[in-house]
Design a protein around this nucleic acid. Structure first.
Length: 289
DNA sequence: AACACCCCCTGTCGGC
DNA sequence: TGCCGACAGGGGGTGT
């Protein structure tokens, strides 16, 4: 589920459900996800009020009172389920519980927030607000793709020294933070750039972006914007559904479309699948150069 | 510094 | 039917 647009959608849905409320009780059902939970995790959450919920790259930052922030990463399969506390709201099949419900927050108004993560590649940590900036996983991140810091000059200069593929360079969270396998494939198709092309070949002199850089920047912004808007349209279902992949997938032009005709007008190509750095890449060899 | 590779974990799907 | 490998939206750690 979770690349930047999905995480953004989750943040908005979570915020609507719990900002301003207090955690009455917290359940922690195992000692670790990808990493161990911090000491006394559940206890430290109880009694805390939710001040705000924001996003940095694919990280969810839940600011609590007492100057602490709950950091959540969804990994590959993490999701939040929200119910109003009455029975039958979700998990119809299992009677309200799942083996992969790892954390449950009971809010003071009866709302119940459940973190479910089948593969447990996600994690949670509690960090003092004044330590957030130096929190290693956040400190390493590059620019936000939808922020003002991503512009042609920035990307040009970042690509200058990269002999790796455009696919790998865009997946590198130290350059642009928040893109993942789906949206990298989609952005490169929109920009008519081959995922196999060496990143440095679209960069020119430092400070003077190559002509192919700006269309790529725009493609990145466009595809993320489109996906967030599609996520937004499913928000009214947020409390009952779960942000699972499914709303934007009908808009995929190349991702998971192997064998389909390229959707680009008059292209005539066929979408191919290759493997780069251990991950699937989907692209059209005709219109992406 | 940059890069490729391995791994964490569970579930599903296609081929034989 | 059943087994087995490949693969799935991420990213930390390691060795070159």
């Amino acid at each position: 589920m979770p690349e930047l647009p999905e995480v953004e959608t989750v943040c908005v849905g979570l915020a609507a459900a719990i900002v301003g409320k207090t955690i009455d009780r917290a359940e922690q059902h195992r000692a670790n996800l990808r990493f161990p939970f911090p000491e006394n995790f559940a206890t430290r959450l109880e009694g805390r009020k939710i001040i705000s919920i924001t996003r940095r790259a694919k990280y969810i930052l839940i600011q609590l009172d007492a100057q602490e922030t709950l950091i959540v990463h969804l990994g590959m399969s993490g999701r939040f389920l929200i119910s109003d506390g009455k029975l039958g709201d979700f998990h119809h099949e299992t009677g309200g519980k799942s083996a992969h419900d790892h954390v449950v927050l009971h809010m003071n108004d009866g709302a119940v927030v459940t973190y479910n993560d089948t593969r447990r590649f996600g994690f949670m940590d509690l960090v003092a607000d004044d330590q957030l900036e130096t929190f290693p996983m956040l400190a390493r991140l590059g620019v936000e793709p939808l922020g003002n810091d991503l512009h042609a000059t920035y990307l040009n200069d970042a690509f200058l020294t990269r002999k790796t593929s455009l696919k790998a360079a865009l997946m590198d969270q130290r350059i642009i933070a928040g893109l993942g396998n789906i949206y990298v494939c989609e952005a490169l198709h929109r920009a008519h750039l081959s995922p196999r092309r060496v990143a440095a070949t679209i960069a020119t002199k430092k400070g003077l972006p190559g002509k192919r850089i700006d269309p790529l920047v725009r493609a990145i912004r466009d595809v993320l914007g489109d996906a967030i808007r599609a996520g937004g349209s499913s928000l009214r279902d947020y409390a009952r559904v779960d942000g699972e992949l499914g709303y934007f997938q009908h808009a995929f032009r190349v991702y998971d479309q192997e064998g389909e005709p390229c959707p680009e007008n008059d292209c005539g190509g066929t979408i191919r699948r290759i493997v780069q750095n251990g991950r699937s890449t989907f692209f059209c060899g005709v219109c992406q150069k």
